[in-house]
Design a protein around this nucleic acid. Structure first.
Lengths: 231, 231
DNA sequence: GACTAAATTTCGGTA
DNA sequence: TACCGAAGTTTAGTC
């Protein structure tokens, strides 16, 4: 990534035409050649940009442009759409390059993780008399989302998903198979809990004796609001 | 604007919960306190961000965090929504601050300007036998978008708008009044051209003998495609 | 891979 | 100032 602070004007020609008058801005050149032109305010949207895949090439300013104070011109083009971004640079105030590497990317564990916390707090949603053993109960093949005990003290393993699909049922099945070999736990029953459970997944789960539980995230969140306000 | 390249992990708690694992990223702190976390790829949307108005405060890492390698923690909060962004910094690789000043902002002269170019090229959209005199024909009270002549050689003044509103009709009326005083031009007829003409504007225009012309931007653009490919 | 729907959307314009 | 709709939308999930 290259970061340039420069006094520049910018012209875009593509799906629309747009112009940025001469001012000092941040030019962010990403490693895929894409360019973002940011001002020192506003929200996350750049003033102007070119999406990847695109190529950046330098152009020498002609005499008129040189007379107007342009020292270099960046031409960013996108092969696919024939869009074009022209950055006319008058002065570079900062210029640095950095190796960032590929990014592992955003984990929107948001809903599932939050659901896990909420269901742990509202464990009786599993049924009257249920008690929480713990969240992320570790097994040899990975953590079970929630381990609880029913009113009779029998172990209940809960697999939580935002969208309940067949994959989740298979996952829970593997956990149950393993846990039921453990004499301290067996017999373990399974609960497949999700905001939304696909018909195929429900059929498979119930065929295997796994109970399905549809969770109302908003309602659970609403009950938790008092706790949230403590932050 | 402050630019920081740092090895960091990021957590967001607000309308959803999200997590960014430890990696090297760009942290852009704008003068309004807002923060953008960018990776070296993807499009213009940051991996994570906090919209203004918000405040950034530094927190000392506790012992556990310090043991994990966290050297400093940024806490960015938004007053209104109670959203919170936590940046746990492990290592700062670059840190610089820059004065950018306020930005004049984007001029999307795009559609209207482009329409003007296209209509000038396709001047016969005004009617058979029309010829272009020039775009931006200057008068004492400002430039008329397009001046043309019809098949009989009579002057035609065109006011172009993306959305044809009453204002535009009034504007054209003023131009026509002025131009019709010029013996070299008179008699000048008016054409109010827009992608969309509001009923009120159409009524007013036709009442004043101004012809209304609805332009099909996409079709005009399509005809222009061959020319665009020359770039 | 194309298509559809949501987004921590943002950004205009209009009532 | 609040609501509504488009965006050079982007992004994630489904078919």
């Amino acid at each position: 990534m290259r970061l340039v602070i420069a006094k520049c004007s910018v012209d875009y020609a593509g799906r629309l035409s747009a112009h940025l008058p001469l001012a000092t801005r941040l030019l962010m050149v990403k490693s895929d050649g894409s360019l973002l032109v940011h001002s020192d305010g506003g929200s996350y949207k750049p003033l102007n940009w070119m999406s990847p895949p695109c190529t950046l090439s330098l152009i020498d300013p002609d005499d008129d442009q040189a007379d107007a104070g342009v020292t270099e011109i960046w031409k960013v083009t996108q092969a696919k759409t024939a869009d074009m971004l022209i950055v006319s640079i008058h002065e570079i105030l900062h210029d640095s390059a950095h190796e960032l590497g590929i990014d592992p990317g955003l984990q929107k564990d948001g809903v599932e993780a939050h659901l896990q916390v909420l269901l742990a707090e509202q464990i009786d949603l599993l049924g009257d008399g249920h008690t929480l053993v713990r969240r992320e109960y570790m097994t040899a093949i990975g953590p079970v989302d929630i381990l609880a005990r029913d009113s009779k003290g029998a172990a209940v393993a809960v697999e939580l998903k935002r969208r309940g699909d067949i994959d989740g049922v298979e996952q829970l099945t593997r956990y149950l198979e393993l846990m039921n070999r453990d004499p301290h736990l067996a017999p373990v029953t399974g609960v497949f809990a999700a905001q939304e459970i696909k018909p195929q997944a429900r059929t498979l789960a119930e065929d295997r004796g796994i109970r399905c539980l549809v969770l109302d995230y908003d309602a659970m969140r609403g009950l938790d609001d008092s706790a949230s306000r403590l932050f």
